[in-house]
Structure formats: C-alpha cells, structure tokens
Write a protein that binds this DNA or RNA. Structure first.
Length: 877
DNA sequence: GTTCAACCGTT
DNA sequence: GACGTACGGTTGAACC
C-alpha cells in the first residue's frame, strides 16, 4: 500500500523543507485514516515486508528478481510509516523470512477463528485467496481513494473463479511482478475455463493429457512453472506472530508523538484529520481547563483594583489590534494572571485611566510576558505607551528551544507545546476577522491569547533552562529585541531624488539590452525574464550547448550563461546578461522606492526568530542584501544617506570574523599566529600552503587559499572547490591536502564538531546557542550530508551572530552612558551602520571600536574596520 | 488569487 | 549521483 501511495502521489509535491520525500507516508496514513473512518474497526495491525530473504526467495532465487530498483524518493519512507504507526499505537508486524501477506493471512485465519470479521487491505492480488464469508479484501483500484471491498462474488465477477481458486488461476497465468512466469498463451480467461471445467488445479493436472490444442501443449511443457507458482503464491496462515490481538485494540494515538512527528513531516491537514477522527479535537482538549472569564476594566479604579489583586503575578499580556488601510493600531489590552483575566479597551479611555495604564505597562515591578515583544513594544509606543518589565517573549523562547522551526507564531507554538488551538488569533492576524473585531467581542480572543502566552511562558522556561538557553534569552535576545525595535523605528534616510534617477538609469540599460538581445536573434521578441522562453531561444532556436539539467529542462542561470558565452561568444548572451543585471538592480531600486515611509526613511523589520543559526534577517524591505559587489550595484548604496539633524553615517564591520572564530575554536597555532601578527591572513596562509615567502604569494595563490578558507566553514568539498576556482578536482584535492598539512587543527576541529553533534544531537556556539540536527542520524545520505554541513557551519556562523549581538548591546549602552544622540540604524551580519549626531563622531567611533572589539574574548583579536561618510557607500570606503 | 520554480542579491 | 551556510524577494507559469 505504501508503494501504491508512492506511485499515486507525485513525490515532488510531498517533501519537507529538508528534502525528505513524504508522498508514500502521506498516502499510506491517509488511506489508513479513511479505512478507520469508514470501517470503524475494533482492532488494527499493519504488516511490513523486510529486506531479508524469505522462504520464497530461498526456494526460488529468481523470486521478484528483475524488479526496478526502489526509487530514491521511496527511501526512508517505510521507516517513517512505522514511526507514525508507533505514534498511533498501532502495532506494525514483520517477520524474518516471511512476507507481509503471510502475516495478514495468518491474522485473517486466527481472527476468524476468534470470531472476528476481518478486513484485509492489500495491493497484492494474492490476498484474494484469503476471502471467505467472514474475510473481505480491500484492494485499491487506482490511486489511493478508490479502494472497494472485494468479497467472493466480486472476485468471481472479475476473474470467473471463486476466491479459493484464485491461487490456481494466478499459478496458471503467472505474475510478472514477482518474476513468476506462468503458461505462455494462457491468460485469465483460459485459466478460469479450465478451473471451472476440472474443479481446480489438481483436477487440471489429473487431466493434463486430455487438454487439446496449442495451449494444452504449452501447459504440459510448463507444468513445472505452474506447480512452483502455486507453491509460492500460497500464503501461510500458521505463523507464530509476536503480537496478540489485545495489542491491536484500536487505541487513541499518542498525541505528543504524533504532533512531533507530523511537525517534522510537515503534515497539517493530515494532523487535523487524524485528531478529528479520534475525537481528539485540540479545542476540546483546551476546554478541559477553562480560561478564567475576563473582567472588563472600565476606568482607573477598576484597573488599579485588578492589578492590585493580580499584578504581583507574572502577567500574560496581549495587544488586540485592528488593521485598516495598512496601518495596525492597538485597540485594547488583555492581561492574564494565574487565576484571572482582564481586558481594557483603549478606544474611549479617559486621561486618568490612560495614566494608570501607562504606569502598569512601564513598571519594572509588574513582570510581564508577551509573544513578539518587539512588535508589541512598537505598537504600544505608537499609541504613546512605554512597555517595560517584560521578562519573556514566548516567540524568542520557542526559537531558542527550536531554532529550526518554520514558524514561531503564537498559534503554532501553542498548538505544539500546549495542544491549544488559537485559530481565531491566526485568523485575526490574517485579517480574516477584521469585521468581527469591530463587534463587541474583541476581548475574548485577546484574553485567550494572553492566557496562552502566560501558560506558554511557564511551560517553556524549564525547557529552555534545560537546554542552557536562559542566559541567552535574558541577557542577549530580550535586551537586543528592544534595541532592534528602536532601530526599526529610526529607519534610515533615503535620497529619493537619487533613487528615482537610478531607476531611470537602470531602465535605460534594460531597454538597450532588450533591443540588443532581440537584434541578436533576428528580431524575435521574447520575454527575457522567462526562463521557459529563454530555454527555447538558447537551446532550440540558437541550438547552443545544453547546460545543467533542472526540473523544467536546462538552466539559464548566470554561471551557465557565462559558460555558454565563453564557449560560443554569442551576442545574445551578452545582452541577456546585461538585461539580467539591470533588471535585478532596478527591481531592488523599485522595492526601496516603495518602502520609503512618509518621514523619508526606510524602516526595515528584523526577524529575530527566523535564521536557524542565530543570525537576524531583514524584511520589508530586506536591507541585508543591498548590492555591493558590482560598481553599478554600489550606486544603490549611495541613496542611503545621513538624516536631517545628524552629521554623518558610520559603518563598522568585523574583518574576517568567521575565520577568526575558526581560529579560536580550532586552536590552530598557525592561524592564531597569523592574526596576532596582524598579517594579511590569506597571504600568510598562502605562503604556508605553497611554501613561499609571504611577499612571493601571487594574487592567484591568494585567491585560491581565500576561497578554500571561506569554503571550509561551509563544508566545501574538493569538487565544490574545483568548480569555484575552475581548476581540476585533482588540483583542488592537492590544495586541500597542502592546506591541512599546515593547518591540521582546523581539519581536526571540523571533524570533531560533526562527531560531537552526532553524539549530542545538537551543535553549540561559543555562547551556548544550540541548533538541533536530528538528521545527522538519517539513513538518507543526502539529508545526512546536508545536516553535516549545517553542523560544521552553525557554531561558526552562530558564534559570529552571538558576537555582533553582544556588540550591539555594548554599543547601545556605550552611547547611552555617554549621553549621545547618535544611534544604530542597521545590522548586516558583521556590520553595523550608525547615524552620528553633530560633534559626536570621534566619541562614537571610539565606543564602537571598543564595544565591538570587546564583544568576545577569543584567542585572536577581533578586528573592526570603521568608516564615516554621508552615504552608506561613502562611509564604507 | 495562490503556489511553485527559477533566479539572484547579501553574508 | 551529488557535491557551500544562512536568508528575502521578484518574476513567470501553472493551478484553483
């Protein structure tokens, strides 16, 4: 059935983010749920084949030979199905030396004897021999949804024999899939005729000499096939099964295990179907422990009374918001303590109440917990409230516990950790409840969320402690969150006139490139942005050499186009590449243009719980991928300028921070020495790898070791290195060998990191940030390799992320302590951009150098490069 | 209107 | 046969 599901569902549509295919698992579980819903069995068991030889293959070595190899995408899915069965408390049975169908036949026979009615689900027609008055077979017609029950009459209607004679028929006809040839020339019709004439195979064999014609001859010639087939297709009904019926009683699934597994498999509709089926509705589960009814706080006195009674407790806080015309506003606040909840509307609030509320929100002594502190802080700030005393952000806690999770939204983590459904919160977030929010019951969902946040906070705290993440939460991420909120609110000033000019310039380039491209293909006009149309032009019209294969044909990516240009020199390629570059730049410019707010500045949003390594990410717009490598691209950096009332922009970046972390973590004497002496790292490494004086290291040698050094932290292979440097794999291998001969501690470290991660199940940064990598133990080689590279990289990239985050806390404190007006605006992984107030440049530079340099005590110095200028581009050069 | 595939920008 | 981390965002095309 797993195989049926595998072929019925397209593998490419069922895969997790990590690349594990799940179509067979999905289909199998889906079918099983349908069966359970339709047939309402009291007992369920699942049987599996093993890879080991069976009595059939031992007797007939050709049994099932000649089958196509199991497709790559099927790998591992059987084990996953077994895990799902375990989570559902359904026994899965397999027996060395026997096939799944033998187990089923035994179960059917024993079940009947015990008085059960039996349903066998199998994709193998041999199962028809099990059919009796009490046993039916569910046999899939096609796909996974059409699985009608077959009884004796159904078999007879289809094959013209009774089920107990089906094996005789199959023996005569043969079974290609099992490599069991039957009698040539005899199909189901002839076989059925003989069986009905002679009463079965024994009768046929008795009368074998009386059967006339070519088919009779054929039968006599191949009678050995028939007897062998009959012996092999007979299913055993007397195995000693390791599991009794009592273990097969259909039980409720192990909720925890199913949730965890379905999270990993990314099954969401199936999860709902499963829990619906078992009457295990998450909403019901939550209702077992009702949320205290909320009090509506009307005035200052009401608020103060409630806070007086409950405010000494940790308070769950949730802001009720309404979004209209793209702007989101807080319209009310919900509080939850251990045994009470309250809601206060902000819509018609008097001055006195506003003041009382402001006091509660800003008070350090009223400890609070929220989900997404940064967002809440900004929303409240907009409304004139300062939020403080927040000890936990459940979004960040959940992230530190499971940084790989795709979503850390409140409904998702509430579902996972507390089994509480917050669909209405989700719907509200998606704007689907916008109308309802106008209605009277704005409070209930907000209160529910506040209650859940508090419960989650208490639930996650011990988990985080156990994983050593409490310090990161309290002393790094929470204070950082506040800094990020301020950076986002500050935004960065934009020279919009310049931005418009750039747009026009790039448009001109695009138009010119488009004309040139069309001219190069005889005036044919295609959409140069359509890879599909480009494929036609490149590989059909122009008949250029084929590039690397991708799903939809052949790739047209930049690297391949450059390759093709070298090979063919075709002018279309030149124009196309120019078009690509210019459209990409114009699209970046257009994105920025749309993002300029009414204050003339761009306010990005930092995602603090997205990157699994601990880095930040930037969105709406992404200011961490503004072009810098090309001349044209750098022009875009010129539009990021110092704002009114400030003197200059300042950028400060760590030089080679990841290599320095590598030197520190590996303890490699050579690397450490290079950094202590302040030498050009790549020159130093090059001189050792190539055995020449530093001054004799050529640019080519330098760029080779540079690529090598950087690649190391990403798990680069000799193949990858050869490709990048356009050298032979042999040469790349020699380069790596020479590198490690001189810097062996690096290799030892990289190996040790993976070994340790395999042992622990996670990697750790210098500051204790963990990343769990269960797929290090996967038996899927590709997944395992990916996990191994992630294990190499996570401590390095993650430590760098920790360090700059610590630096940001230091810089913020330094600026505040010195009473400066200058402020941080942007973070780009190893770089900070600040806006410096008039007269503060020297002090700010000194603070930034000191704090960034002191963010970590490594065995090598942290080198910081600082620059100032009126634009981001000027500042950096 | 939504989702997927391809592509490409940064570190 | 595959082969470098971590991201966000746009476009075209296919689909509902």
């Amino acid at each position: 059935m797993a195989f049926r599901a595998f072929y019925a569902l397209p593998a490419e549509n069922f895969a997790t983010d990590t690349g594990q295919h799940t179509n067979a698992v999905h289909g199998f579980v889906s079918m099983l749920l349908t069966m359970i819903r339709q047939q309402k069995p009291t007992h369920v068991a699942v049987a599996f084949d093993l890879d080991t030889p069976t009595f059939r293959s031992l007797e007939y070595t050709e049994y099932k030979a000649g089958r196509n190899k199991t497709p790559e995408e099927f790998h591992g899915q059987i084990d996953l199905i077994r895990k799902v069965m375990e989570a559902m408390n359904i026994p899965s049975i397999s027996m060395d030396g026997f096939e799944a169908d033998d187990i089923l036949a035994t179960l059917a026979a024993k079940g009947e004897a015990a008085g059960f009615e039996v349903l066998v689900v199998s994709g193998d027609r041999d199962a028809f021999q099990m059919i009796t008055e009490k046993t039916l077979v569910l046999y899939p017609k096609k796909g996974i949804s059409d699985i009608p029950p077959m009884d004796g009459d159904a078999v007879e209607a289809k094959y013209f024999v009774r089920p107990e004679q089906y094996s005789d028929l199959a023996a005569l006809v043969g079974e290609t899939a099992d490599n069991l040839p039957g009698v040539p020339g005899v199909g189901p019709k002839t076989a059925a005729k003989w069986i009905n004439l002679y009463g079965g195979l024994p009768g046929i064999l008795e009368n074998i000499d009386n059967i006339k014609g070519k088919v009779g001859e054929s039968l006599r010639e191949h009678v050995d096939n028939v007897t062998r087939n009959r012996r092999l297709n007979h299913l055993l009904t007397d195995l000693e099964l390791p599991v009794g019926f009592e273990a097969m009683v259909l039980d409720r699934p192990d909720r925890e295990a199913v949730e965890e597994l379905f999270d990993a498999l990314q099954f969401n509709t199936l999860r709902k179907r499963l829990f619906d089926l078992f009457g295990d509705d998450p909403v019901e589960a939550a209702e077992e422990e009702p949320i205290p009814a909320h009090e509506l706080l009307q005035d200052a006195a009401g608020l103060e009374t409630w806070i007086g009674a409950h405010g000494a407790q940790l308070l769950g806080l949730h802001a009720a918001t309404v979004t209209s015309a793209g702007a989101t506003d807080v319209v009310g606040l919900a509080f939850a303590s251990n045994d009470a909840t309250a809601f206060i509307s902000l819509e018609e609030i008097d001055e006195e109440t506003e003041k009382a509320l402001a006091q509660v929100l800003s008070s350090e002594s009223h400890t609070k917990t929220v989900h997404d502190f940064k967002r809440t802080y900004k929303l409240l700030k907009n409304r004139g409230f300062e939020l403080a005393g927040v000890h936990d952000d459940t979004m960040i806690s959940a992230y530190l516990i499971q940084p790989d999770r795709r979503s850390h939204e409140l409904p998702d983590i509430a579902q996972q950790h507390l089994r509480i459904s917050l669909d209405e919160t989700k719907a509200a977030a998606n704007g689907q409840l916008a109308l309802d929010l106008e209605g009277p019951d704005l409070a209930t969902p907000a209160v529910r969320a506040a209650h859940v946040v508090r419960a989650l906070s208490l639930h996650l705290a011990p988990m985080l402690l156990e994983r050593g993440g409490t310090d990161l939460l309290k002393n790094l991420e929470m204070p950082l969150s506040l800094i990020l909120a301020h950076m986002e609110m500050s935004g960065i000033a934009i020279d919009t006139a310049r931005l418009d000019e750039l747009y026009d310039d790039f448009t001109t380039t695009i138009n010119r490139a488009t004309e040139e491209a069309f001219a190069a293909i005889d005036g044919q006009e295609v959409n140069l942005s359509s890879p599909k149309q480009l494929q036609v032009v490149l590989f059909e019209t122009l008949d250029l050499p084929k590039t690397k294969k991708i799903k939809t044909g052949f790739t047209t990516d930049a690297e391949s186009l450059a390759d093709l240009l070298v090979k063919t020199g075709h002018p279309f390629l030149v124009a196309l590449m120019a078009y690509r570059d210019a459209t990409k730049l114009r699209q970046t410019v257009e994105g920025l243009r749309k993002a300029v707010a009414s204050d003339g500045r761009i306010h990005t949003t930092y995602a603090q719980t997205v990157a699994a390594t601990g880095r930040l990410s930037s969105l709406n717009p992404n200011l961490q991928n503004i072009p810098v490598r090309s001349e044209e691209g750098r022009r875009i950096r010129e539009v990021f300028v110092v704002g009114d009332g400030f003197q200059t922009l300042l950028t400060a970046d760590y030089s080679q921070i990841e290599m320095r972390i590598m030197a520190h973590l590996s303890g490699d004497e050579g690397l450490i020495q290079a950094y202590e002496e302040g030498e050009d790292l790549h020159r130093f490494v090059g001189s050792h790898v190539f055995g020449v004086e530093p001054a004799e290291v050529t640019n080519e040698m330098r760029s080779k070791v540079k690529a090598m050094s950087y690649g190391l932290a990403y798990g680069l292979s000799s193949f990858g290195l050869s490709k990048q440097l356009k050298i032979s794999v042999d040469e790349a291998r020699t380069l790596m060998k020479d590198y490690f001969a001189r810097f062996g501690a690096v290799r030892d470290y990289l190996r040790a990191v993976v070994d340790q991660a395999r042992k622990d199940g996670y990697t750790e940064t210098i500051f204790g940030r963990r990343r769990y990598l269960p797929e290090l133990a996967s038996d899927n080689r590709q997944l395992r390799d990916i996990a191994e590279r992630a294990a190499l990289n996570a401590p390095i990239q993650g430590s760098a992320a920790d360090i700059i985050k610590r630096a940001m806390l230091g810089v913020e404190k330094g600026l505040a302590d010195a009473g400066l007006k200058s402020r941080m605006l942007l973070q780009v992984h190893d770089e900070l951009v600040l806006e410096v107030a008039t007269g503060e440049l020297e002090t700010v530079e000194q603070i930034v150098r000191e704090k960034m340099g002191a963010a970590a005590e490594l065995s090598v110095p942290l080198d910081v490069h600082v620059g100032a200028g009126t634009s981001w581009q000027d500042a950096a050069h």
